[in-house]
């Protein structure tokens, strides 16, 4: 699951000209550690929805990787 998230995150980083990351952890903060702005987060949202069939941003915006994992039920 973390590996799949990392792949999505790196494809978004690549799209906005950022270097890929080696790894992420549950405490990784989406804005501060990944440098994601609202547009990168929107891209993350639609990609997670496409991969896992769940809109993890529907009710509130996740702050960290663990928030996403919780919403995905892992």
């Amino acid at each position: 699951m973390l590996k799949e998230l990392l792949d999505i995150i790196n494809s978004i980083r690549k799209n906005s000209g950022k270097q890929p990351l080696e790894n992420i952890s549950e405490t990784t903060n989406l804005r501060e550690d990944l440098g994601f702005d609202s547009f990168d987060l929107a891209e993350l949202e639609v990609n997670i929805e496409d991969r896992f069939g769940i809109d993890v941003f529907e009710k509130d915006i996740p702050i960290s990787v663990s928030d996403i994992l919780k919403k995905l039920g892992r």
């Binding site: 799209n15 929107a42 891209e43 949202e45 639609v46 990609n47 496409d50």
Partner: peptide
């Protein structure tokens, strides 16, 4: 827009 974003 979400579709365009996903499909770049």
């Amino acid at each position: 827009i979400r579709n365009m974003l996903l499909n770049r």
